[in-house]
Simulated scan of single mutants.
Amino acid sequence: MDFSKTDEQQLLLDSIDQFFEQHPEFDERYIRDCEEKQVPLSEFRNAFIDAGLGLLGIPEEYGGVPVDTQTLVMVAEKIGEHGFPSGLGSMLQVDDVLAFGTEAQQKEIMECLLGGSNMGFCLGLSEPQAGSDSNAIASSYVRREDGKVVINGHKTFTTDGDRAKYMLCMTRDFECGLPPQKSMTCWLVPMDSEGITLENLHKVGHRTRSLCEVYLDNVVVDESDMVGNEHEGFMVVMKNFDVERLVIAADSLGMAVCAYNDALLHAAQREQFGKPIGQFQLIQEMLVHMRIKIDNMRNSIYRTAWEKDNGESLRVASPLTKYYCAQAAFEVCDDAMQIIGGLGYTEESRVSRLWRDARMHRIGGGTDQVMIHILGRQLLKSVR
C-alpha cells in the first residue's frame, strides 16, 4: 500500500497552513482564553467551515466535501501540528448516522455539523457502574400504550452533553429476557427533552470541551428516534468504537507532532553551558526516540485508515492503533515538556496543554487495559 500524498491531498494540507497564516488570531492565546472561559472554539470552527475545510468528510448531498478516511487523518495531523484539536469527531458522527440512522436522522445531524457545531450528538454510553463494562448498562426503555417510548437512566462522562442538540443514548430492554448484548437499543434523544438534567464535571485537560453527568427521568421519545434496529444497539456501539479509536489515534498524532516541533526548536535555540542544549547527546537521544514514535504512529494510523477505506475489519487494527498512539503521544508530549524544562511546565507553553490533553486519550474510547484485553482476545481467536 502506498501512503505517499496525492497532489490533491498535498494541496489540501497546504491550504490548512495558509488558513492559519491568514488567521493569526487563532493562536495559543486564543485557545488559552477559551480554556479559561471554558467555552468551545466556536470562532475557529466557524472560520474553518467558511473556508470549506470544516466540510470535509460530510457527503456532498448534504452540502459537504466527501473525502476518504486516509485524507481525514492527514488533515487531523495537520491541524494538530498547529496546536488545535482536529474536530475529527464529526467523522465519528457521520459514520454512525450514515450506517444506522434513518434518512431524517441523517439530514438532521448533517445540518448540525454544517451549522457551526462539531457536535450533532453526544454519546450517552458510560454510566457510573458501566464504564469499561458495557454489559452493566442500566439505562432502560419501556413502551407506553400510546406508542411513545420512555427512557430512564444516568449517563456519565458525556462530552459536550450541554452543547449537543442530541444524545445517542444506549438503553436496555429489561423485559425481553435476552442477555445484555442482545437487549440494547440506541435512541437519538433531543437534549432539550423534558426530564433531562445536567451537571458539569471539571476535567484536567480538554477544557474547551465540557463533560457532563446526564440524568434522564421519564424522558419521552418517539419510535422514529430509534437508531438502528431494536436490540442491536451493541453493534452500533462496536462500530462506533472502531471509528472513535481511529479518531483518538489521529488526534494523538497531531498533538505529538506539535509537541515534538516545539521541543526541537527549543533544543536548537536554548543555550546552556555555552551551547544549544540540542548538542547534548541525552537531548538528542530524546528527540530521536520522539521522532521514531511519531513515524510509527503515522504508519499505524495511515494503515488503519486505508483498511477502513477498503472495507476491511478494524477489530484488531483500531484498538491496536489507539493503544499504541495514545501511549506514544503522551510519551512524546512528556519528553517535550522535559526538554523545554521549567517553561514547559507553565501555562505559557502550549506543550503543557498538549501534555494534559494527551493523557485523556489513554482513558477515553477504552482504557489501555481494555485495549489489551480486546486485542488479546482477538489475537487468540485468529489461531483457533
Rank of each mutant, 00 (worst) to 15 (best):
N46A: 14
G278W: 06
S318L: 09
T71E: 03
D357K: 05
D33E: 14
L211D: 05
W355H: 13
A328M: 03
F44V: 13
P24W: 09
R298A: 04
F234C: 11
N152P: 11
F3Y: 11
E347F: 13
A256L: 02
L114P: 01
E331A: 07
D262W: 04
L375V: 09
C186F: 11
F84Y: 15
Q93Y: 08
L211V: 06
E36T: 14
S382F: 11
C212D: 05
D2W: 08
E347W: 13
R207L: 15
P319E: 01
I372F: 02
P128K: 10
V214F: 01
G228N: 02
I137L: 15
R377D: 12
Q10L: 07
K78R: 08
A259C: 06
F3L: 09
V383M: 08
H202D: 13
D96V: 14
S139W: 10
Q106N: 03
D251N: 14
E199R: 11
F26S: 11
Q327P: 00
V94E: 06
Q369T: 12
E28P: 05
M167W: 04
L282Q: 09
E35Q: 15
F234Y: 11
G54M: 07
I292M: 05
R172F: 12
M184D: 04
G63K: 03
S313D: 15
S126V: 07
L53N: 00
L13W: 02
E61A: 02
D68V: 08
P276D: 00
K203N: 13
G365N: 01
A336R: 01
I277E: 01
D33R: 13
S117L: 01
R359Q: 13
P85C: 01
L264R: 12
G228S: 03
A259W: 04
A256M: 02
E232S: 11
E223H: 03
M167Y: 06
L114N: 02
T346W: 05
R270E: 10
Y141L: 12
K203Q: 15
H266G: 00
D162E: 06
D251V: 01
G153T: 13
K182A: 15
L178A: 15
N118A: 09
Y166F: 14
L88N: 06
I374N: 03
M297H: 05
T159P: 00
Y215I: 10
H373L: 11
G89T: 07
A130L: 13
Q129R: 15
E213A: 01
N152A: 10
L265D: 14
M286R: 12
L264A: 13
L88F: 09
D14W: 00
N135S: 14
N118Q: 08
K239Q: 13
E21C: 09
H289G: 02
M371K: 10
V243N: 09
E28Q: 14
L55P: 00
H361Y: 00
T321M: 04
T185H: 04
R377T: 11
K165H: 09
L343A: 05
Q93H: 03
S86K: 02
R207T: 14
Y30M: 13
A51R: 10
